[in-house]
Simulated assay, not measured.
Amino acid sequence: LFAGAGRCASCHGGPQFRDGQRHEVAPGQWLKTPTLRNVAVTMPYRADGSAPTLAAVLADAYHRAQPFRPLTDPENAQLVAFLTTLTDTTSANHTAPARLPELPALPTRAVGGLY
């Protein structure tokens, strides 16, 4: 489904699961294709956070218009199951650092700041 009937791989292909292109997802709204790596743990979805689940993303107007044919509910469930497998489980239990290491060349760094 991902590479075939769902046409997901046409935008979310390659090793990063994205094409690096901008697509018109709504009239006048162009967005760069997001990666699907760790997508199951990066909710909410869509640029404005309006999709709380992956199923909601697949049900939005943009994604419903992409397949060669309308996907069935079981097929959408299969896609969600596949997307869940793209989660990196090796670092799932890591926590953000409480403070950054001391670096004399960059004395004003702050956690969550711009680098």
Score class of each variant (00 low, 15 high):
M43Y: 00
A3P: 01
P74K: 02
A98F: 11
R99W: 10
T42R: 11
P101R: 13
L114V: 15
D88S: 10
A77G: 13
D48T: 06
P101M: 15
A51N: 05
L79M: 15
A110R: 12
T85W: 14
L79H: 07
G4Q: 07
H23I: 08
V57S: 03
S10H: 11
S91Y: 11
A9C: 03
V111E: 07
A26V: 10
T108H: 15
A77R: 08
L106I: 09
E102G: 10
G6T: 07
A26R: 00
P97C: 14
V111G: 07
F82L: 14
L58R: 03
R64K: 11
L103E: 11
S91V: 13
T53K: 07
P104Y: 10
T84A: 14
G6F: 11
R99Y: 12
T108V: 01
P74V: 00
D48I: 09
T33I: 09
P107D: 04
A61D: 05
P44A: 00
T95V: 15
A59K: 03
D88W: 12
T108L: 13
R37Y: 12
Q78Y: 04
S50T: 05
E24I: 05
S91M: 14
L58Q: 03
V57H: 03
M43V: 00
M43I: 00
V57R: 02
P101A: 15
N93V: 06
G13Y: 08
Q78A: 15
L1H: 09
G28M: 08
P44M: 00
Q21E: 10
Q66N: 05
P101D: 14
L106G: 03
E75S: 06
T95L: 11
R18C: 12
V57P: 03
L86G: 08
A59P: 03
D73P: 15
L58K: 00
E24L: 13
A65H: 07
A51F: 09
L114A: 13
T84N: 14
S50Q: 13
G112H: 05
L36W: 13
L31I: 11
A40S: 10
P44E: 00
T85C: 10
Q29C: 02
V39K: 02
R37V: 13
C11T: 04
P107S: 11
L58G: 04
A55I: 01
V41P: 08
L36K: 07
V111Q: 06
P101T: 14
L54D: 02
R69L: 15
P27H: 06
A65C: 04
D73L: 14
V80R: 05
R18N: 12
P44W: 02
L79P: 04
M43P: 04
A59R: 07
R7V: 08
F82H: 12
H23D: 08
Q16H: 08
C11L: 12
H63T: 01
G28Q: 04
A77V: 00
D19M: 12
A81G: 07
P104T: 09
F82W: 15
A110P: 00
F82C: 07
N93Q: 09
A105Q: 06
P74W: 01
G4N: 03
T33N: 05
L103A: 12
A51L: 06
P107G: 04
L71I: 08
A59H: 09
D88C: 06
N93I: 04
T89K: 13
L31A: 10
A55K: 02
D60L: 01
Y115S: 08
Q66E: 07
T84S: 14
P107K: 02
L86I: 02
L36N: 04
G112L: 10
A105Y: 10
Q16P: 00
M43H: 05
E102P: 09
